[in-house]
Amino acid sequence: MGEWTTAQVQDRLELAAGVMRQMPGVMPQGFFNAWPEYFHSFADKVGQEPQMRRPRPSPRQITQAEEAMLWLRWLEKDDARLVWLRANGTPWKPICWELGISRATANRRWQYGIAVIVWRLNGRSAPRNRSMQFVVRGAT
C-alpha cells in the first residue's frame, strides 16, 4: 500500500470498532447452561419478526482490526481513548464530559492523534518539538 491518509486511518479504525462490536461476548470459564434446548414450533413463531444476525467477521477483518488497535499504542493514553471513542461513533458531548475538555480541544486532539498514526504508518515519526498544527498539516 502507498502512503496512508487520514481518511484511510479513520476508516480502518471505524472498521476495527465495528468488528469488535460483532465479536461474541466473553463468557467466564466453566460457564454452561443446564436448561434444555427449546425448539419453537411453527405456531410459536407466527406473527413474529425473524431476528437477523450480522455475519461473524472474517479472519482477515479480525487481523486488520487487531492491527488498527495496535496503532493506538503510539498515542498518549487520553488521546488513544479519544480516538477509539470517536471510532466507535461516540458523540462529542459524552467524550468531552468524560475527558473533561472542551469540544474544540477534543477535536484538535483527535486530529492530532490521527495525524500521529498517519506519520508512523508512513515510516516517519511525528516531531515532538513542533506544534500540533504542524503535525496535522504534515499528515494530509
Rank of each mutant, 00 (worst) to 15 (best):
V19N: 02
C96I: 10
K77I: 08
Y112M: 11
K93M: 07
P36I: 05
R130V: 02
Q61H: 15
M20I: 04
Q64C: 05
S125R: 13
R124W: 08
W119Q: 07
C96A: 13
Q48R: 13
I117C: 02
P94Y: 01
I95R: 01
W84N: 00
R12E: 08
R86W: 08
G100H: 00
Q64E: 11
S41I: 03
W35R: 14
I101N: 01
R60P: 00
K93R: 10
M23R: 09
A7M: 02
R137I: 10
R108Q: 12
L13G: 00
R86S: 10
L15W: 01
Y38G: 00
N107I: 08
F42C: 12
F39T: 06
G30K: 15
W92N: 09
E3R: 14
W74V: 13
L75M: 06
P36W: 10
Y38H: 01
G25W: 14
Q10I: 06
L70W: 13
F42Y: 14
G123Q: 09
R130N: 03
L121T: 08
G138W: 10
I95D: 03
W110R: 12
F32H: 14
M1K: 05
M20H: 09
P55R: 15
T63P: 03
G2M: 09
T90I: 02
N122V: 00
Q8R: 11
T6W: 05
E76C: 01
N33D: 12
V118W: 07
P57H: 11
S102E: 05
Q64L: 10
L99Y: 05
D79Q: 13
G25H: 13
Y38K: 07
T6D: 06
A87M: 03
G123S: 09
P94W: 00
G138F: 11
S125H: 13
Q29K: 14
I114R: 04
W84P: 04
R103G: 02
S41N: 09
G138S: 08
R108L: 12
M69I: 14
R108W: 04
S131E: 03
E67S: 12
T6Q: 11
W71H: 06
R108V: 01
T140P: 01
S131H: 03
S41F: 08
R21W: 14
P28H: 05
L75H: 05
M23D: 03
W97Y: 15
N107L: 10
W35T: 07
A87P: 06
F42G: 15
R103V: 00
E49V: 14
A115H: 09
S102D: 05
D78A: 07
S131C: 06
G2T: 09
R124L: 10
R130C: 01
Q29M: 14
L85Q: 00
V9C: 00
A17T: 04
S102F: 05
I62L: 13
I114G: 01
G18V: 08
P28T: 07
N33P: 02
R56Y: 08
A104L: 12
V116G: 03
W4Y: 08
S58Q: 15
N33R: 11
S58N: 14
E66L: 04
A80Y: 07
E76M: 05
G25R: 13
Q10H: 04
A43C: 10
P55A: 12
V118K: 02
L85R: 01
